[in-house]
Write a protein that binds this DNA or RNA. Sequence first.
DNA 1: TCTGGGGTCCTAGGACCC
DNA 2: TCTGGGGTCCTAGGACCC
Length: 420
Amino acid sequence: MYALCDVSAMYASCEKVFDPSIRKKPVVVLTNNDGCICATCPVARKMGIGKSFVPYFTVKDELAAMGVVIRSSNYELYADLSQRLMDTCARFAPDHHVYSIDECFLYFGSYIPDAGWQAHAKTIRRTVWKEVRLPIGVGIGPTPTLAKAANHASKRIEGFNGVAVIDNNAVRRRVLKQMAVVDIWGIGRRLARRLNEMGIETAWQLAESKPALMRKHFSVLVESTVYELNGITKLSWDDVRSPKQQIYSTRSFGERVTDKSILRQALLSHVTIAASKLRRQQGLVKTIQVFVSNSPHDRDSFYRKSVTHQFLTPTSDTSVIANTVSGLVENLYRQGVHFYKCGVGLIELVDAAQYQADLFSLSTDNALLMQCMDSINARYGRNTVHIAGQGTTPQYTMKREFLSPQYTTRLEGLPRILCD
DNA sequence: TCTGGGGTCCTAGGACCC
DNA sequence: TCTGGGGTCCTAGGACCC
């Protein structure tokens, strides 16, 4: 059996943990640079504020009129609470996999809890609330896709109250019949529309359809989904937690950038982020892609440029990659462009353990230095030591106008308890 | 006054070569 | 008279997820 645990409106829920004054108010959290809405708490959702990823400025006045509390993304806080959440969830299964900042899969293998699945799921939910003060939904099912569906039911279907277990056909049927096809894991807006045109509206109808036919009309992925909805595992545990095939770090700027050296600094900090993720999964990169662009919303004509670079010897050394990227900036930069976004992608990866080195090309990686850097940063914070090319103080800013304190990671952010 | 997220994977199609 | 293949590499863009 598999379980999927995820936090309801993660970012909004995190904001409420250390600030009792907003617990009963509608809260909305914005993405980087306060661009879009990315999380809406249940109170706000009840008021009809449901749509994620609408640009904030288009609904700003409306939200203000409704008395909605606005927060910028406070990643330091969310990452720290996420860590605590994952530590707690991990205790309840032999194996776990962190799927995103607010979700994890648990894999039980042959393990069966003494108290039964329903009770086990309730215990997970209650323990997380007690220890981390985050509201989670727990879904359990025989395949990852059904665990996801159960999780959906736990939060969205009447009568489940945060916990759903699909362990027999009656429940499976009940859940899938009340679930729109678009809410199935892996079925997006577009596929859903095409399925609807074929008369398939609910998850149950998709489960009942012929797998081979779905493969013919769509892809093997949709075919696998049909099997998974019927309890036949197509996504093995190894698939669920397989290492990334590509790693990206990209970000938009708070203010447009026109200076070449600032663009370079930003790209080099993306190298730092991406390379450390790469080392975490014990990978080496063969091909990188670096891109810069202005905004399609700006009046200027659209400018986007990307270059790819192949390394003779695969590497995971931040300074080796940074040197290359630094050189590529000359190709990417253009005078007069108002840069809005840039990023670095590690697009062709190999497993460090399996890589067969070439006899004549010697790696210049300084593994010991990287190890040292990673362990210092793991302990004292992400940018405690970094390459000089990133600059000592970032010259580009991120707009975070409504930022809450970093309650758990900075002394000056420590919550205060006032006594009358 | 102006404002528009970030990440991963996949594929169609163009350029180039033989 | 008219026609015309197949592989590799690269890029842009789309789909999906959170």
